[in-house]
């Protein structure tokens, strides 16, 4: 749907240039037939597999019952959206989603880029490869296992409390998961631990595309390690960073749900519950697929707004965009 509105806009201008434009266009197409062959099958593919199921969005406006045909469904207008937006908890849930995703995003970027740079600076090839492999291991833990580990590390007799007590920094063990205000931080740290190595891979790939001659030249000019990082490595990753940043800004309402669900409890629920968790509780688990769809639509709209904004901002700043 979005595609049409965006592409439809220019219609009025069309007639005057139609003839000339069309011929030139056909010729261009002919010249680029190889590129067309490369893309058209996949454009068809993406429409069938990704765009076609979007008819399901109509569910958001129905009291959807899977057994009924489309014409038999009961239309309820914005009922499910209202349920979502008018819920007492909605603002809190939205706040948690935003906070969690912003924290995860900022931490995720900074740590992954940092790790990639530092790994790149390792001079021993073997050590470098070992570090790289080990750093991405936690990505393969399911959240069930990861959350259990986080929970045990943070428990009263967990290692962190033992260190704090041992150093006499606290006089009573801290109940980390029992303080709501700490949840975002704990979540951010857990996410970082689990995914920093994985996220760094892409930057490592970007670094390896940097022409080595630049480093040699800089060395000859007497640039220090840190200077070389700042002036060669980071700029070398810039285009990838920007592309990822814009894409991730589009994910502003996607903070995941597994970790929140598994680490959430009665004492931190005011800070752990986000949109996805809310939808699971009041949607899927109540056999209410419509609520999940409505929430999904809401997220999509927000995503597009942020995506377009980030993209144009980036372009204005002369950094190129996603499209």
């Amino acid at each position: 749907m979005q595609a049409q509105t965006e592409v439809n806009a220019p219609t009025p201008k069309m007639p005057q240039r139609k003839d000339k434009g069309f011929k030139a266009f056909l010729k261009k197409c002919k010249d680029q037939r190889a590129l067309l062959i490369m893309t058209i099958p996949f454009v068809i593919w993406v429409f069938i597999f990704k765009y076609l199921p979007v008819w399901g969005w109509t569910m958001a406006f129905q009291d959807y019952k899977p057994a009924r045909t489309f014409s038999e469904q009961e239309w309820v207008g914005f009922k499910h959206f209202l349920f979502l937006f008018e819920s007492d908890r909605f603002l809190g849930v939205l706040r948690n989603t935003l906070a969690q995703s912003v924290i995860n995003m900022v931490l995720g970027f900074v740590t992954a880029i940092g790790l990639a740079v530092l790994i790149n600076e390792l001079t021993n090839m073997k050590f470098k490869r070992v570090v790289q492999t080990i750093s991405y291991l936690p990505h393969f833990l399911s959240w069930v296992v990861a959350a259990a580990l986080v929970s045990s590390v943070l428990s009263i007799d967990g290692i962190i409390n033992e260190i704090l007590m041992g150093l006499n920094l606290v006089d009573r063990e801290l109940l980390f998961l029992g303080v709501g205000e700490w949840f975002w931080g704990i979540l951010g740290a857990a996410e970082t631990w689990k995914n920093v190595g994985w996220n760094a891979i892409i930057y490592l790939a970007a670094i390896s595309m940097i022409d080595q001659e630049q480093y040699e030249a800089a060395k000859i000019d007497g640039a220090s390690r840190v200077q070389r990082i700042i002036h060669i490595t980071i700029p070398g990753m810039k285009s990838v960073i920007i592309v990822l940043l814009i894409m991730n800004i589009g994910y502003i309402l996607e903070a995941g749900f597994e970790a929140q669900y598994l680490l959430g409890n009665g004492q931190n629920v005011e800070y752990s519950e986000n949109i996805d968790v809310f939808v699971i509780k009041y949607g899927i688990s109540q056999f209410n697929f419509a609520l999940a769809t409505a929430a999904g639509m809401f997220k999509t709209v927000i995503s597009f707004v942020f995506l377009v904004a980030a993209n144009s901002l980036s372009k204005k700043m002369g950094q190129g965009g996603l499209y």
Partner: peptide, 8 residues
């Protein structure tokens, strides 16, 4: 940024 949902 979107998907049609499980059932569709």
């Amino acid at each position: 940024y979107f998907n049609g949902g499980l059932i569709p």
